[in-house]
Design a protein around this nucleic acid. Sequence first.
DNA 1: TATGAATGAGCCTTCATTCAT
DNA 2: TATGAATGAAGGCTCATTCAT
Lengths: 213, 213, 213, 213
Amino acid sequence: MLDYCLIERSIKSVMARVGTEKLRKQELIEAAIRSIENNGFQGTTILTISREASMSAGIISHYFGSKQGLILATIRHLLEQLKQGLLQQIAACEQPLTPELRLQMIVNTNLSCFQQSTSVTRTWLCFWAQALHDPELARLQRVNSKRLQRNLLYSYKQVIPDRAQALIAANMTAAMIDGLWLRSSLSENSENEFKQAEFLCKQFITAQCQMWK
Amino acid sequence: MLDYCLIERSIKSVMARVGTEKLRKQELIEAAIRSIENNGFQGTTILTISREASMSAGIISHYFGSKQGLILATIRHLLEQLKQGLLQQIAACEQPLTPELRLQMIVNTNLSCFQQSTSVTRTWLCFWAQALHDPELARLQRVNSKRLQRNLLYSYKQVIPDRAQALIAANMTAAMIDGLWLRSSLSENSENEFKQAEFLCKQFITAQCQMWK
Amino acid sequence: MLDYCLIERSIKSVMARVGTEKLRKQELIEAAIRSIENNGFQGTTILTISREASMSAGIISHYFGSKQGLILATIRHLLEQLKQGLLQQIAACEQPLTPELRLQMIVNTNLSCFQQSTSVTRTWLCFWAQALHDPELARLQRVNSKRLQRNLLYSYKQVIPDRAQALIAANMTAAMIDGLWLRSSLSENSENEFKQAEFLCKQFITAQCQMWK
Amino acid sequence: MLDYCLIERSIKSVMARVGTEKLRKQELIEAAIRSIENNGFQGTTILTISREASMSAGIISHYFGSKQGLILATIRHLLEQLKQGLLQQIAACEQPLTPELRLQMIVNTNLSCFQQSTSVTRTWLCFWAQALHDPELARLQRVNSKRLQRNLLYSYKQVIPDRAQALIAANMTAAMIDGLWLRSSLSENSENEFKQAEFLCKQFITAQCQMWK
DNA sequence: TATGAATGAGCCTTCATTCAT
DNA sequence: TATGAATGAAGGCTCATTCAT
């Protein structure tokens, strides 16, 4: 008759009280990503997320106002991760940072590091489709899209004297990154495809850089 | 005994019905595309579609069995349109068809002709996101994805002697087309972006071809 | 493109015009019974019936006003069949008709002849359940129920001098017929059960009659 | 660190919930019976039941998974009631329990005690009709049908030495109980009929028993 | 603070009925 | 007379949200 699971949860909740709201939110965001991976974006409900987080259904509204609030927070989390990903790589780099090396790192971040987990990939694509009809998501998407372009352009300008040509190279590279990512995500054998994608992208960058040496 | 007049009428009515059915299906498919444009994939319900088509809700099940049936028919329609787009361009071409010209036409089809309507663009992106969680949609998506690659490869092989290099060029171009399409679709000023995209893509192709002349 | 099936139907319809409305109605009633057998009472729709009769869906409303109208006509048809069943047996009887023989014939009619087809059995039970909430069906059911009792009583009175005792015997027999029919219908191996039921019922009648000889 | 007070509250709430759940389920089952009485099986929808229970429509899926789940629970409840009815009567019996007395009690349970409420009677008949098209209901019906026969046979064997004859008596009695129940349920003046039915049934049993004394 | 029981709006689907032909 | 295309009301179910505890 006794629901020990509930007791356990109580203990947890007591401890959580000691911990922070931040921790809870983080757990929920991670649970949301896992749920999208397992059940798809459409199949993800408040229940699947809260179960994944071993919390109650009401907690989501409690912390994020609504399901949409959690989704937005999740997206912001992913965007932030993507941003930090590049910074960390640069920080961890032991060689002198040439423009070309930095460009390769951008590819790394976008194709290798960040996208290697299916769950993130799925969430990402769903988020893009959703952005078409959700102004807030659209805004976030554009910020991210422009950051990629800006990041590429910054390095290309150091290699390509002609500003217009640098812009073209940046745009091409951004498109290739997104296109390869999209095609890899949707492919049957996506793990393999991502490796191929990285190779193609880096080769393209190398070709661009050598053209202007 | 036999009322041939009545039989004749039946035949007529059968033919009329076939015409009506095709027409109705076509109207519903277009309504579905418009609804997805306006309300998004998730926001598209049997009601939004039937209202868009000025028909009753029941008609969708009547003609397509289910909502999913209409969705599948819609994507098949778009895929077919895309396929025919290239064939028509080639047929309408008055100059001798060089490999490079054919490559440009592929770009035209995928970026200019086909994608110029926002509704189609949006529907397309929604379908891709959906394909992650729907095996049937995924299959259709893959067929289309591979067709683009095959089409590109076919022409590149006539320009680039090295088969491996031709494959790389094809894959790069496919990625660039998809990436540019994706970025343009999601951009604020998508019409302009599509023009830019076409330019970038064609330039990339030209560069690839000249490299091997 | 030509729907030959439709033409065939036309020919049929021409012939039907020559025939009578009665024929059509009869065909529809039989189709209704077959549909109930195959699809259950709940699973029987205007479409299943009209398909079973190779006619259009609209024809049912046309001839019977509504689906309910066809159901009622079907019940009336079955009741009439049951009534005629006994008369035919008596007419076909070559031995002198003793009261006991007549009682056995009533059992025959109710358990053997009439009920041997699953389709009729199913329709019958559904009709009884439905009668609880449908005054018109209830009326028909009661007419039938009382006829069985009256029929039994008529013969028992010739065997049992005491009128009260004859009534008791009639009521018991009626109950046993209905009970055995019900239990047989619902049993897994209903064909076998119906044979058993007939045996039990006849033995009961024999016992009743011998008690008063 | 541990807030034992909170844990204690949880335990309490768990116990309360278990109580609430049982109560709610019970209320819904009773509402279902009432709805079937008033609206028939076909006329009974999730809405009629939830309205009858003064609850929301969603609550049924919440507690029973689906409408079918509630229906099954309802019939299981009725079957259990029927089973307990006999046990209680036997337990409450102050005289020595002769086989004949036990047989009378079986009649009492099936005709008097259990069936005296119209709602139950109607529900019961609807279930039987439904059982024809629903394997799960059919299984439950058969279990019940066989239990009645087994119960009767158990007592008859103590009175009738010949096993075959005991089986015949049991089957006849079972049929008579079901038949009388069915006829009484469907009759206009069903209360009176049930009393009559009880009398007839008991007389039949007495007659059977005396035959072998 | 955190729960989860309860709600009810909205979804897709089925199907009896209507009506132009 | 007979068709079957079209309707739209009603069904069961899902699920985000609310709220008493």
